[in-house]
Design a protein around this nucleic acid. Structure first.
Lengths: 159, 159
DNA sequence: CAGATAGTTTGTGTAACGCAAACCATTGAT
DNA sequence: ATCAATGGTTTGCGTTACACAAACTATCTG
């Protein structure tokens, strides 16, 4: 039985690799973010909020795929650090419109600068173009194809 | 002050996006993997082991960046499911050489097939080529540039 | 032989959740 | 006006995936 040809190659799934590289980055990021009073979860929320530019907490919960009760706590953190603002929606005063403050935007940018070393270390095997490609792919992947973040989503019953 | 030109654009950091998309995949993967008796952490370990094709538990711990005591438990799970094998290293009988079994390789492939729907859902905004690119980038990023997995690493004092 | 090293077990603590229950303010339908 | 549904909040409970420390065994190396 010499040299079996490689048959039935398993499909290339990103999940495990994503998990792996994400963990490596997260471990290092924690110590970088700590001085800024942030956890990685906060970073994710801020990033999403920057993109969405104002959404209800429900929308945010849906996007983050987090339980809404936990989103409350997350936002409490961010709000008491003045990084986000909860405004009552004028159309439906039950709703909170969550938005990045200027401070929040700056802090986020600051964090992103601070994380240079982390990504240099973990993504060291990728050159600048490749990292940019990676970013673009991830960005595209996370930019809602589906339900979309806004008002009309309220009318959909099949989530 | 009309139309401020966008100045001082923050750098494109992948961390948060990685966290986000990874979470989305992980949430869904859990239910797919459960019938196979696997958790996502197991998948990551199996994936790494497939690539490394035999390494000590220390090397594995270093690669996964996990505490070695927790690696023990992880491997106990996998070993009792016959997915990996711990062989004593002949050169240094303190060491365990950890390797994927045939069963393990098959189970891993099976899991990867089963995860098709998950990736279709989460990475739906990416076409086939883009997903392959993503895979390649992640694969390259996780394939050790540094200490490298092998024998001589034992001699390095500066970790 | 002595001290370091690989792995294991046990035990403790923590962070990040999910989930359920009860509550308020508000809305929208009757 | 009334009443059920909705968005958000708080509290509290359980789980998982860790990190970290301590103590132990087997083995290696000087």
């Amino acid at each position: 039985m010499p040299e079996l040809p490689v048959v039935n190659q398993p499909p290339h799934r990103c999940g495990a690799l994503l998990d792996h590289v994400t963990r490596r980055i997260r471990l290092r990021s924690e110590s970088v973010l700590a001085p800024l009073g942030l956890r990685t979860r906060h970073l994710v929320a801020l990033t999403v909020l920057r993109d969405l530019r104002g959404c209800s907490q429900q929308d945010l919960a849906k996007t983050l795929e987090m339980d809404s009760t936990n989103v409350v706590g997350l936002l409490n953190d961010l709000e008491s650090a003045n990084l986000i603002e909860r405004r009552r929606s004028p159309e439906d005063r039950r709703r909170h419109i969550v938005e990045l403050t200027d401070v929040g935007a700056k802090q986020l940018a600051k964090a992103e600068f601070a994380l240079a070393a982390v990504e240099d270390e973990v993504l060291g095997a990728l050159d600048k173009d490749q990292r940019e490609t990676l970013y673009t792919l991830l960005y595209q992947a996370t930019s809602r194809t589906e339900p979309a973040g806004c008002v009309d989503a309220a009318h959909l019953e099949e989530c």
